[in-house]
Design a protein around this nucleic acid. Structure first.
Lengths: 347, 347
DNA sequence: TTGAAAGCGCTAACAG
DNA sequence: CTGTTAGCGCTTTCAA
């Protein structure tokens, strides 16, 4: 006997009134049970649940949203394409959202153009969401949106102005600094940087972390080469860098750029890590298995997603109370085989 | 002057009645304009649009869904974690869904357990979706669901029974066969296989493609080693395989396993591709930049997503008409540096 | 080409 | 602890 077997297969889907009738209670009581509200006798609760089950009842969220003004869903605008970083962050966001009892609506935009992001948020709002999370937006935030739900910016400061914005970082600055210091600690006189596209906040932040580390040690700051996250752009940067005889260490703002970079360096006859050390950024586990295994820093995606959603749900549900602050996400350097002390002497 | 400047910032959001009043028409006419229905004078249309714009009007989708019974959104249950394949497919699905004018609701499940999938579909249905797409489910499909919306299985045959199911493949069998034949064509006497977890349909399909290629050439079929898609499992398989002196060619069911495999082979003193050739599966562009660059087959994710959504939208909107069939997705072998003819003679 | 009336299925507010 | 009464903002008849 499948659920709902008592009725014709083509009969309309059961409504809460049907459940109420079968359970012998009012619709409101059914509503109470379904929403886990207090003040329902155990007996009534039991009967309602049994009736709902027997009927194969499924709550109509559109009706609930219309009546309550709340949709119980969170919209996320995901940036970028299928990179490991973005995808991994998205997975963790989804998980955190679901754990919090919300549904997820998603829009992906290939680039981080603020107008595009604003358009995506607009679309999400129209579809009805209780909050919005913007994952890793770009830096320039001149757009202003009329948004009355809370907005979380993950991995960046607010990319546009709205009534209630939150922002949770992924410690990019600190991670970049850690990566650079690792190289400096190894004895390299300075560290070159292959940056991400400077329209992205994440790219800018990493660059600044690198710059800060250099400054703190009084190391010379070589010119930056800007890539676009792709391995191709890392390769191009590597060709350029390979001609510099003083080059001994490079920090790339992304693992994939680092991979391209290493390839170019080797094609140019520079050994990694014997001649040149390379550190990446992201922490994709697969790069532990390439030659040489990539030293990198791991982004605390999970911690950031959980913390961000925690704050967001708090803003939705208890906007007037304060939220206990969370501990900072861990900063993790993964030392593998692409880094080593600089060659004995050069030139 | 920002939109809606005429009203107090805290006033309730404008409704279609407000637009109607300002435009001097009835609510139904507003509805007609907003839904691009015929039988509206240009003049009325213009006035409605102007009024909506002036008020900063945003249609309430919950109300529309309640009244019309259609949500204009498609639910997707995404399988697996942040791998390149899954993420890339998801991005293309999102794009195709949005292009079709639908919103996307997403649930991610880490494994492909049919019960989990069924639960995810149930959740999606409750949230209200006009159709469901299940991305790359596992093979065993004993679950039966009472689903009245169309369901698309992408990359696999139906994983559960429902009223209206569609299925669009990603040519995995053919791709696996092509990969294997490439190795055979190079002169390898046979090809070993590192498979994906056999609970996954995609893994089984690739294994069968490999098997078919071998059978067609009358090549001996060596025992299969089963991995779990991770580079670690590829490495473990590589350690095992490296002890076989007859080994000259391996087809791995995923790029990441291939990377782990190559690493193990080299750790064991077998050169790639001089001693052993390796082909992967997926087509992640970054592996063009590792050493050796990985020969692989590219999955037609975009073509599959577009075609699947096309069929799905057709099933939603015109369930009674036939849909012109689409051409098969392209099968693409990407030959890079990890494959070569077998060594002159062995043993 | 347009409008009036009647719900869609649920929850909110209030009364028992 | 439980029920009653009104809507939520839109689309759907159906009539003009």
């Amino acid at each position: 006997m499948t659920p709902g077997a008592g009725r014709n297969a083509d009969s309309p889907a059961p409504r809460s009134a049907d459940v109420a009738r079968l359970a012998g209670v009012s619709r409101k009581t059914v509503s109470r049970v379904l929403n886990n509200e207090p003040y329902v006798s155990d007996e009534a609760r039991r009967r309602v649940l049994a009736a709902a089950d027997e009927l194969g009842y499924r709550l109509n969220h559109a009706a609930r949203a219309l009546a309550s003004g709340r949709t119980h869903s969170i919209g996320v605008v995901a940036l970028g394409t299928a990179g490991y970083g973005t995808a991994s962050l998205l997975v963790h966001i989804e998980h955190a959202v679901r754990d919090a009892g919300y549904a997820l609506r998603m829009i992906n935009t290939p680039d981080g153009d603020p107008k595009r992001i604003a358009g995506a948020v607009e679309t999400l709002l129209e579809q009805g969401v209780d909050a919005v999370v913007v994952s890793e937006p770009v830096v320039e935030g001149e757009v202003s949106l009329r948004v009355d739900v809370p907005v979380l910016f993950l991995g960046a400061p607010p990319a546009f102005t709205a009534a209630r914005t939150l922002s949770v970082g992924v410690a990019a600055h600190q991670l970049a600094r850690t990566a650079t210091e690792h190289l400096l600690d190894l004895g390299h006189p300075t560290v070159h940087h292959v940056a991400g596209p400077q329209g992205w906040y994440a790219a800018k932040d990493r660059l600044e972390g690198w710059r800060a580390a250099l400054a703190a040690r009084g190391a010379h700051e070589p010119p930056v080469i800007e890539g676009d996250w792709s391995p191709e752009s890392g390769y191009a940067a590597g060709r350029e860098l390979a001609s510099d005889p003083d080059l001994t260490a490079v920090f790339a703002a992304g693992d994939e750029m680092a991979i391209g970079l290493i390839h170019a360096l080797r094609d140019a006859g520079r050994r990694v890590p014997e001649d040149v050390s390379v550190v990446g950024f992201d922490g994709n586990p697969v790069f532990a298995y390439v030659t040489p295994p990539l030293t990198t820093v791991r982004q605390p995606f999970q911690a950031a997603a959980r913390e961000g959603i925690r704050q967001l749900v708090h803003a939705i549900e208890k906007p007037d109370t304060d939220l206990p602050p969370a501990s900072d996400p861990p900063v993790e350097l993964v030392v593998r085989g692409s880094t080593a002390p600089p060659p004995p002497h050069q030139g």
